[in-house]
């Protein structure tokens, strides 16, 4: 959608300030038209920058859509929000039995159950967030074809609604740590940064997938499969230290790997691998930028394709 401020026709990329009209609204009964158009609609080619200002103005919609997703998710379920705990908890139990006990996978000297749970915590959040936001545009096609708002809001609020489940599971992690007698160290302050990174990565991949999903419905089948692979390609069941030194770099290409190790270091006060965390942050940023550019480019045809 091309929304440019006509204030400077030479600069068609500058996006409009929609709510600016609020200043004019008071005297609207007297109709004083602004000198320049508030919105200019015209076809646009090439890449379109993200309008963070407009996203900010629509923040209420992000919050309300997030709240909708959370409220609706556990309506008419017997166990409600308990599912946020059950999912990672049972996965952890199964992993503990099969990988911890039977296969004897090492866990850097940490009891295997909390070792696995510390990895499953970000993984569950990430995989649910990507699945939900990847399907979010198609799932909200009624909105896309009937109302205007920045389309990015939909995958973003899908990811945001996963944060509540994450918070519940996070409390469980803290309880498990108390149970296993793990001391809470100062490295815990790293967690907000990690959560932000994981959220941004999920927004990036989710937004990208959601846009592709509008055009190629294959994504619906690709996503669960890719996520299953991701579980094994990330150090969730096993520690990174188990990967031979010369293959370690392959691991660091996976931005989630560095983050998951980061969560473990933060929870258990282990030495932090700043290099892999730094690489992960850079890759996350690159994905986010690439995804938003792709999204903006494809956004124009959403209403026609969906």
């Amino acid at each position: 959608m091309n929304l440019t401020a006509a204030k400077d026709p030479a600069k068609p990329e500058s996006t409009i300030e929609m709510i600016d009209t609020q200043n004019n609204r008071e005297n609207m009964s007297g109709i004083e038209l602004p000198e320049d158009p508030i919105v200019v609609i015209r076809p646009r080619n090439g890449w379109i920058p993200i309008d963070l200002g407009e996203l900010w103005k629509y923040r209420d919609l992000i919050l309300i859509l997030t709240a909708r997703d959370i409220k609706v998710r556990y309506k008419q379920t017997l166990l409600g929000a308990a599912w946020a705990v059950i999912q990672p908890l049972f996965t952890m139990l199964i992993f503990t039995i099969f990988f911890g006990r039977l296969a004897g996978v090492p866990s850097d000297g940490i009891p295997y159950p909390i070792f696995a749970f510390a990895g499953l915590l970000p993984w569950t959040f990430f995989s649910n967030a990507v699945t939900n936001s990847g399907n979010s545009l198609v799932g909200n096609s009624n909105l896309i074809s009937k109302v205007y708002f920045p389309r990015m809001i939909i995958p973003i609020s899908s990811v945001a609604s996963g944060l509540v489940d994450f918070a519940i599971a996070f409390l469980l992690q803290l309880l498990l740590m108390v149970w296993y007698g793990v001391k809470f160290g100062p490295s815990l302050i790293l967690l907000p940064v990690l959560v932000a990174l994981t959220s941004l990565l999920a927004v990036g991949i989710g937004m990208w997938m959601s846009a592709l999903n509008v055009k190629y419905r294959d994504i619906r089948y690709v996503l669960p499969f890719a996520i299953q692979l991701g579980l094994f390609a990330s150090p969730i069941i096993y520690p990174s230290s188990m990967v031979p030194e010369k293959w370690r770099w392959v691991m660091s290409v996976n931005p989630l790997a560095g983050q998951i190790e980061g969560y473990r270091s933060a929870f258990f006060g282990l030495p932090i691998d700043w290099t892999s965390l730094g690489v992960s942050a850079l890759v996350t940023l690159a994905i986010l930028v690439y995804a938003s550019v792709t999204f903006k480019r494809m956004e124009r045809s959403f209403a026609d394709l969906i």
């Binding site: 009209t21 004019n24 609204r25 038209l33 158009p37 919105v39 200019v40 609609i41 205007y148």
Partner: peptide, 9 residues
């Protein structure tokens, strides 16, 4: 083509 809007829609 082009559309100019001088008000909130």
């Amino acid at each position: 083509g082009r559309v100019e809007l001088y008000g909130r829609v």
